[in-house]
Every structure is written in C-alpha cells, then in structure tokens.
Simulated assay, not measured.
Amino acid sequence: MAAFFSQGLQNVDLEEHFFNVKELGEGGYGRVLSANEKITGQIMALKIMDKKRTRQQSFLQEFSISYLLSSHPNIIGCNGIAFTTINYFAFAQELAPVGDLSSIILPHVGIPEDAVKRCSVQISNALEFMSEKGLVHMDLKPENILVFDQDCHSIKITDFGLAKVKGTVITSGCGSKSYMAPELGDITVSDGLVVDGSLDVWSFGLNIYCLLTGEFPWQVATLEDEGYKCFVDWQNNFHMDNPPEAWRKIPTGIRRMFIDLLAIDYMKRCKATEILKYVSESWKEDSPDAATGQEDEDPMKSSSVQSEESMTSDLNTSQGSVSITSLSYPLTTDSSGSQSEMTPEPHKDNMEEALIIFDDEFSLHVGAEVDIE
C-alpha cells in the first residue's frame, strides 16, 4: 500500500486547497490541524509531519495503516487523502468533535462506570480487528482514543505512528512508559523482542484502570517502582489475603479481569475481548449512577457497541475509492500496597505463530513541532 500511495503523492499548496486552517494539538510526532476543503467544504483533521524529521517511507507506512484499518467503526476514519507541501507530509482523517479520552477523565475519579464499559467494549473490538489484520498499535493511551460524544457511545483509536506488524523484532522500547508492558523494559539489543498483540492488551488493561480511577497504579512497570512491585507480589503470592492498596478500589468481581489483562507473563495474557465476560459485573465500588438512582443503558446494547456476530459485516465493509489528486487530568500514581489469591491462567490465543520481521526503524516517524505558517 505504501508503494501504491507513493506513486500518487502530489505536492500541493495548503492554502490553495483548504480554508479555516486551525491547530488542534501537537505531540512528539506531529501536529493535527482542522481544515475545510475548498472544493467540497468538508471539515477534516489534517495530520502534518516535517519533512526534515520524517522519512517519506515512514509517513506512507503510517498513512497506509490508518487507511487499512479505517473501515472499523472504532478506528478513526481515513479517506485516502494524502499529499505533501514544500515542507510537510500530510494526510486527512475524520474530525472528532469532543477531543480525546484524556480530556474527560477527572483526576482521582475517572469517568462514569457505564462510560468505562462502553469505552472498553469498543476498544476491545478495535484491538481484535487490528489483531486480525496482523497489526499492533504499540501506543494505546487515552490521548490516542478520540471521543465523538460526551457519553462515549462512539470512540475511535487513532495515531498509528508507532504501529508494528506482528512478528516484527524490536531492540528498544517504544510508546508511553506508563502504559508499556514490562517486557518492553527488559529488551536486550542482542535478543530483541517479537511484537505481538499481548503488548496492546497490557496497555488496554491500564487504560481501563485509569478510566475507572483517574489514576495510574504505578508510574512504570519495573521492580524499582513500588506500586508495580506490589502488583507483582500480588500475582506471585496467592496466599496473601489483600490486594495492593491501588487495587482495593477495584471491585472484587473484576479483579480477575485485570489479573488476566495484566499478566506479568505475556504468554498468560488474555485477549482484549475477554472483558466482554465482565460487563454484567460492577466496575466501580461507588457508582455515581447508583448513588443518584439514575441508570444508563446496557453498554452491550448500545448502538455503538456490537456483538462478535454483528461485527462480522462491519469488518468486511470495503473502503470507498482512494482520492489523492482530488483533495475532495493529570493522572496520579498510588504506589502503596499489599497482596491476593488469584492464579492467572495461561491464554494462548495471543501466541499464534508469526512471521519474524526485523525492524531497523524503531518508530515510524519522528516529531514535527514546527511552525505551519
């Protein structure tokens, strides 16, 4: 796909094709703008990357992955518009009206239980779809999950700049350290690490914890971090009666879910869709909805959430034609702790045989904090 898109990549004048260009945000890897296309008036998000810091192949790889995955209802739409300017690479995506998940998380509180469940089901479906396509996101966090309504009936994963093909061998960690699996911190240059979906499953588990509590259970998954060390002791010493302090706020009924999502041994991690077994459980000890007597709809019956059977037709939906020439919060860490008795079971669904690919480029693009004027 990258080779195909490279043939039609044209150099254009941004101001000639777009109006109402506004900056939405920036990160370590680029900037996102909102803009209206002059021909159609359509508003869209433009992701731009500085040519001085980004190889064309890296840009095309991210664009191709975004386009490949965009048919899924919980992955950001990408309509096939990619181009260059004198100084930048750019491609267009659908615009999220609310922002990202991090903007709605209340510190030490999180978001309402029903919204957490809706988010979790949608993210799990998106990760399952990515797994079927042989891809791993590598940087799943609330900042990379876009929100389309305040109650989270529709959310979509975005930013595939660090995405890898399953089976790729990496020799250094990548992603956001608070969401990185422990094996990413133990990589040796000589041996490397084979990328698979269990890395996203770990990040997914931490995303759910942050949505529920508005906090991190630890800063980084190394034994030097007291919060993480207590969690490891909890998994390894099952005679202990109590979980660490950070996990006492999680209801007993779903602690098993976290044990499986955050298994220290990546071979024992469950699939992301395992969370579907827990949606009938209480996910917060003191639910705001329960306290006020208000009830929200069952997230499994929401129009934005689909069963595995109903997902089939969506996963097979074909994309429209490609258009190249027609530019038609702060979370805090609670690191105190003690320990429990749940033995993680092996989950081999994530361990299918994969083609081994050695990756000499550890991130798909480099930051573009630039002046767009």
Results as ranks from 00 to 15, higher is better:
W218Q: 02
L211I: 11
N237W: 00
N237D: 11
Q219G: 15
Y228A: 05
V232M: 03
A246T: 10
L212Q: 09
N242E: 14
T213P: 03
W202M: 05
F204C: 07
L211R: 09
F238L: 10
P244N: 02
S203K: 04
V220C: 10
E226D: 13
F216E: 03
P243S: 03
I208D: 02
V220F: 03
G205W: 01
V220L: 09
S203H: 01
E215H: 12
V232Q: 05
D225M: 08
C230A: 05
K229H: 12
S203D: 06
G214S: 12
G205P: 03
V220Y: 01
Y228E: 03
E245P: 04
E226N: 12
N237R: 14
L212E: 05
E245D: 15
Q235M: 07
E215T: 09
E245N: 08
A221R: 04
N237P: 04
L206E: 01
Y228M: 05
A246H: 06
G205S: 05
C210P: 06
E215D: 14
Q219V: 12
D225Q: 02
F238C: 08
D225T: 10
T222F: 08
L212P: 09
D233V: 13
W234S: 00
V232Y: 06
D241S: 12
W218D: 13
N236A: 10
E215A: 13
Q235F: 04
F216L: 15
